[in-house]
């Protein structure tokens, strides 16, 4: 069975259309969506209507959650203060533009979807706001896949697609408790994989093209797809709709945000 996994459409109707045609030409049997239908882009309502009309199973993204529940992200979920301020502007705009029935639909989206040994989430199994970056410590990444009770964990949220294979994970543990002898045991994990679907509508891999992934359940083959689309049209709509022009400038470049340096003293209070 051939699956197509899309994520982070962010109100970009042009990009979604281009990706859906690319999926058509690859004859995928089933599409999954990892959320973030709204936010940043100019067409949140049209995107949601299209996803619904195609009956695409969708999990709730960080933006979908925030549109439903009000801004709920800890500052640590933004890569910089500037990104956070812009995120708030986009949130306010989207919050005004979104139709009531669209908001209702976003509220019904589940946190996770499953099919056999596959698990689908937006950020991580813990939270829609957690970034599973490819540079993340391998054991921490392995923990996320195992806590999802899956062999393959599909996620989005970072807007940069990747495949990460984690093989031969081995941990040994030595326990000492007062009044008891020392005990030791070993733990091994079979091959686990993280597949990040990238972003349809707000790619940040350095080019403007939309990204998504194909997954063959029989061969376990993962294909990262990059699809050109008429981004100038979306950029024009961003400006026309009164969204910050810098969004259009960044969209046209597939620009990545600078990463915030990790602050070990920060305990997320979300």
């Amino acid at each position: 069975m051939k699956l197509a996994v899309i994520s982070c459409i962010h109100g970009n109707y042009e990009a979604l259309n281009a990706v859906l045609s690319d999926i058509d030409t690859h004859r995928a049997d089933q599409i999954y969506c990892l959320g973030d239908l709204a936010g940043y882009g100019p067409h949140p309502n049209a995107v949601v209507e299209l996803v619904r009309s195609l009956d695409i199973p969708t999990c709730q993204g960080c933006w979908d959650e925030d549109i439903v529940e009000g801004l709920n992200a800890c500052e640590c979920s933004y890569p910089s203060q500037l990104a956070e301020k812009r995120g708030h502007l986009a949130h306010e705009w989207t919050n005004r533009a979104i139709h009531p029935e669209v908001r209702k639909y976003l509220a019904t989206l589940p946190m996770t979807l499953r099919q056999d040994n596959l698990c689908f989430v937006h950020g991580s199994p813990n939270s829609q706001h957690e970034y599973l970056l490819p540079s993340m410590d391998g054991f921490a990444a392995l923990e996320r896949v195992l806590s999802a009770e899956a062999d393959v964990l599909f996620c989005g949220h970072t807007h940069v697609p990747y495949l990460r294979e984690l093989d031969n994970g081995t941990l040994s543990v030595k326990v000492q408790q007062p009044g008891q002898g020392e005990t030791q045991h070993q733990f091994t994990a079979p091959l686990k994989r993280i597949v990040n679907a990238g972003s349809v509508g707000e790619p940040r891999h350095g080019r403007p093209n939309a990204t998504y992934v194909l997954y063959d359940t029989d061969s376990a083959q993962v294909t990262l797809r990059e699809v050109p689309y008429d981004y100038a049209k979306t950029c024009a709509a961003i400006i026309e709709q009164g969204l910050p022009p810098i969004f259009a400038w960044r969209l046209a470049r597939g620009m990545e945000f600078a990463e915030r340096a990790d602050d070990p003293g920060h305990v997320c209070e979300r």
């Binding site: 490819p134 391998g138 054991f139 990444a141 392995l142 940069v160 697609p161 990747y162 495949l163 990460r164 294979e165 984690l166 093989d167 031969n168 994970g169 081995t170 941990l171 040994s172 543990v173 030595k174 326990v175 000492q176 408790q177 007062p178 990238g198 891999h205 990204t211 993962v222 990262l224 990059e226």
Partner: peptide, 18 residues
């Protein structure tokens, strides 16, 4: 009360990007 030493002794990670 316990002391638990954890040794992440092996893990092979391969990342593929675009």
């Amino acid at each position: 009360a316990f002391e638990c030493w954890v040794e992440p002794s092996a893990l092979q990670s391969t990342v593929t990007t675009l």
